[in-house]
Each structure stands twice: as C-alpha cells, then as structure tokens.
Design a protein around this nucleic acid. Structure first.
Lengths: 213, 213
DNA sequence: GCTAATCCATAGCAGTGTTATGGCATACTG
DNA sequence: CAGTATGCCATAACACTGCTATGGATTAGC
C-alpha cells in the first residue's frame, strides 16, 4: 500500500527552512530551487510533500501563526485582567515587529483561505478571552457592545493597524507603541474602566515585560 | 538635444492600464509582456518611461493614492466637524474596500520608500485636518494627547486595521463597518465628545452618504 | 539636407514555478 | 524468502517572468 513512506522530518525541515528564508529575506527570498538547495533535496520534494509553492507558503503561514501564538501563550493570566490585556498587546506588538516578514506573510500577502482562517482566528481567541475576563471582573461596565468578541475586534484592529502602518514605514516605531497604549486606554475608558484602576493596571503591566519571550 | 521625445500619453496609458490590471486581477495580474500587449507597445517602453517594473509599480501606487485622495476630497467640510470625520471615515472605507487590490498594492506590498511616503502621508493630512477642526470646535476637550496628528493616527490605525483584516477575509464586511462606527465613537467619547452631541453628528453624517463617490 | 540623439521593437539571457520521466528504495504478497 | 508493485525523489524540459543588448526608425537642431 505505502512503500517508501515520505520522510516526515523532510517535511518539517522544508517548513522550517522556508520560514527562515521568509523571515530573513522576505517573501522574495523563498524560491523553489533555493529552498531545495538549502535543505539538500530536489525541487520535487516540495511537490510530494505540499503539492506546490502555494501550499508550502500556507504551511509557512501556519508556522508563523504558531509562533505568534507561542508568544501570546507566554503571557500568564493574573487577577488583573486589564493588566493581562496590556501585556498581551505588547507581546503581540513585539512578536509582529520583530518578525515583520513573517507577519506580512501571515496577514498581508493576500486573502486567506478557509484553512488559514481557522488558525488565524484561533490566535485571536486569546484576545477575546482577555476581554471576556475584563467583562467578568466588572472592569468594563459601560461596554457599548457587550459581546467580548466585538470589543476584541476593535482592540485587534487598532493593534493590527498600527503594526501594519509601521511595517509600511508610515509610522516611526516609537509612535506605534505610544499610540497603542493611548488608543487602547481610550477604548477601555470609553467602555467604563475606572481611570485610576486603569492606571494601576498599566503600572503593574509595565512590571511584567520580563514575561515576554 | 532631444529628438523623438517620448510620447507622454504612452506613459499615462501605461499607468492607467497597469492600475486597471492590478485593480482587476491583483498584483499577479500585472506582467511586463501583458501590459505591453494591452497598451499595444513593446516591453521596452516600460523601461524608457519608468526604468523597470519596480518604478512602474510605484507609479501605480501613486495613482492609487491619487484616487483615494479624490474620494476623500469629495467630502465637504461643514459646521459639524465630527460629522465630517464620520463621513470621511466612511469614504475611506468605501474607497479601500471597493478597490481592494489597489489598496493592497498601496499599503501592503512591502515597505514604502521615501517617494511614496510623501504621497501616502499626504492623504493622511485630510484626517489630521478633520481632527484639528474637532479640537478647534471644542468637541474633544478631554483629548489625552492634544496633538491632532497623534489622535488622527489612532483613528487611522483603527480604520486601516479593520480594512486590512477584512481584505484578509478575517472579518465579514458587515462587522468591519459596525466596528468602525463603534470604535471611532469610543475614541471620540474618550476624548471628551458629548454623547448626545455625538449622536446628533452621527445622525447628520448618515444623511450625507450621497456625497460619496 | 544632414547629423545626431532618443524612443521603441526584436531577440536572447537568467531566473521563476510546474510537469513528465525514470531510477530506486521500501513494504506488502505469494 | 523472492517477487512485485508502490510511492518518493532526482533529472530534465516547458512556459513564463523581468531584464538587457542590439538595431531600426523618427524627429529635433544646425
């Protein structure tokens, strides 16, 4: 039935090498022959394992989402959900801006298909959960839509927008982090978070930057 | 000195055809030979007029920024700057989502160089001006940074983030518009806009959708 | 009317992703 | 245990990409 099974280690080696090429040199750095050369195999291996460059690029996106998720997983939940949210936002920013080419490949290279959509929205659930915990703790009593997913989308859009504007060189990096802090604060205050409690949460979040990978 | 001057109409024809190809079929639809064929010229014309595909793509980006700017110019200033801002936001959203491939080419295809940066930030000035008029009208008395450019960046990031998430198919279109309205409202309220005055402005903005091209 | 300079058409080059072909190692089968 | 067949991967060719060298045609200036 299945003689000479495909080497599974070769598949992961291809993915990791491809992800490294994209991360180091951008989308243009990933080339079929170049990848085959780096891994020490032939171009056909890509077709047996993935079916083509599009599928390989999808695998690279999945790898990127997995890494982003690992960064977000490193943020522990505490009894202060607003502080957790602030740390989460910073972790997202750091992961995105320290791997700009991967972030671009994940979100900006074109419409995502059904397959990627699941993994993409999966990492987004971190944020939804963080907002839900703020709601449950009574920190956002005036939230206009009370659906944590909708609130999370607004925070995510602000973050994603700042990150992509910075990646396009339309914002200096310092600006982006300041606007993220200021914009997120405005949103949370509009949702009813008490200004003084918010300040305390931000202060305690600042002490937790060491958590970030 | 200059015999056989290059036909300037050919240059604009190339730009328009290239913009149409990108708008209709995405970045991959723009090909040197294909473009030359559509315009009825040879591949060398692109090199005499632009120097290469990269410069041509830059010209397409400029064209895209010009069209976006034209859409924003169609929004008239009234005595209600908050309503103006709301209309401006909707105009931006419409222009971006009705020409997704052009918007992608402008903002998402990679870092912009110094040349594009000027034209890109130029369209952004519309938004800064709108925020400045809100400040001057006393509508945002609690704005935490009082610099209109910084406030505008936060609004722009929210808008740009929502647009790009929608273009990536990570948000259903209906969601994006709702979150834009809700998120912008939260920001403006956090900056001190009176809720009832805000509601009136949004109502009057809704009556002005006819302005949009 | 001549000269010189510039634009553009033709053809070829190195590179891309993809596909057809074939050798070969492996797992099942008698 | 031999034989077979099945699927993996290396080689080579194809159509395509952007780019460049060359040359013909056309126009401006003297």
């Amino acid at each position: 039935m299945s003689p000479k099974v495909a080497d599974p280690t070769l598949r992961t080696a291809l993915i990791e090498a491809a992800a490294r090429l994209v991360a180091d040199e951008g989308k243009a750095g990933l080339t079929l022959r170049r990848l085959a050369g780096e891994v020490g195999t032939s171009t056909m291996a890509v077709y047996t394992h993935f079916g083509g460059m599009d599928e390989l690029r999808r695998a690279v996106r999945r790898e990127g989402f997995a890494r982003l998720r690992a960064h977000l997983d490193a943020v522990h939940e505490t009894s202060d959900p607003v502080a957790d949210l602030a740390v989460l936002g910073r972790a997202y920013y750091i992961s995105a801006t320290e791997n700009p080419n991967l972030y671009r490949a994940m979100f900006l290279d074109g419409p995502l298909d059904e397959e990627d959509l699941g993994t993409g929205l999966d990492t987004f659930l971190h944020l939804v959960d963080g907002v839900a915990r703020c709601l449950a703790a009574g920190r956002l009593p005036a939230a206009s839509p009370s659906d944590p997913a909708e609130l999370a989308v607004e925070l995510w859009s602000l973050e994603h927008g700042l990150v992509t504007l910075q990646l396009a060189h339309l914002l200096p990096p310092a600006q982006a982090l300041d606007r993220l802090a200021s914009g997120a604060r405005s949103l949370l205050l509009a949702w009813g978070d008490d200004p003084r409690a918010h300040a305390r949460s931000i202060k305690s979040a600042r002490r937790r930057v060491g958590e970030l990978v």
